[in-house]
């Protein structure tokens, strides 16, 4: 996608450009402007999820819940089959005069296995789509960026975006009220 590689005066490759905001409202409205300017490779970093930020950024709804549902139901079904095969086919255990394969008795474990694998899918899926774990990231090298985990709100537009231009992008963030605008090195 990226047509051009930008470098700083010292020759470092530029990852992107960051701007800092003071309040959720400021960063929310700035995000709307970046969205409307047509950027795609950019992100808003906030200490907590801000209500409605998906809309302000134009992020599509995640398909994660659908995946969790499909995996959960599949695993519940497999769990039922496992019990049916083990007790009903492979090792028929005569106990309490019950039929070998009795679906009613298999309900609790079917349910529990569905929940168990849904939970694994939820967390592993969340990490997978977020490309995590990723213990190295250019942003984490910036001193000011670390304050996002406290009370700062930041927008980062990546140099890899086709719309990126060092001057125009900086001007957009300045116009949106960004402070401490700075380049991030790869």
């Amino acid at each position: 996608m990226s047509s051009k590689v930008y470098t700083t005066e010292s020759g470092e490759v530029v990852y992107g450009i960051v701007a800092e905001f003071d309040t959720p409202a400021d960063v929310y409205h700035a995000a709307e402007q970046v969205r409307d300017a047509g950027y795609s490779k950019w992100d808003v970093h906030t200490p907590f999820p801000i209500h409605g930020m998906e809309d302000a950024m134009g992020v599509k709804r995640t398909i994660l819940p659908m995946i969790i549902g499909v995996v959960g139901l599949t695993c519940a079904g497999l769990g039922f089959l496992m019990q049916w095969w083990m007790n009903g086919v492979d090792y028929q255990l005569t106990v309490q005069g019950k039929p070998f394969a009795t679906w009613q008795a298999f309900v609790p474990i079917t349910f529990e296995l569905g929940i168990l694998f849904s939970a694994f899918t939820a967390i592993i899926g969340m990490l997978f789509f977020n490309r995590l774990p990723q213990w190295y990231h250019p942003l984490l090298k910036k001193d000011r960026f670390l304050r996002v985990s406290d009370d700062r709100f930041m927008i980062c537009i990546e140099a890899g975006d086709s719309n990126f231009d060092p001057d125009r992008t900086r001007a957009l963030l300045e116009g949106a009220g960004g402070k401490h605008i700075d380049l991030v090195e790869e």
Partner: peptide
């Protein structure tokens, strides 16, 4: 895990969190 407070991450995080809350509710009752 290298969490960097990205809103794109938060979006999926909140979805996963809500699903976990949703499945934990019948779980705790069960």
């Amino acid at each position: 895990l290298g969490w960097r407070f990205s809103s794109r991450h938060w979006h999926r995080y909140e979805a996963a969190y809500l699903v976990l809350a949703g499945i934990s509710t019948p779980l705790v009752l069960s």
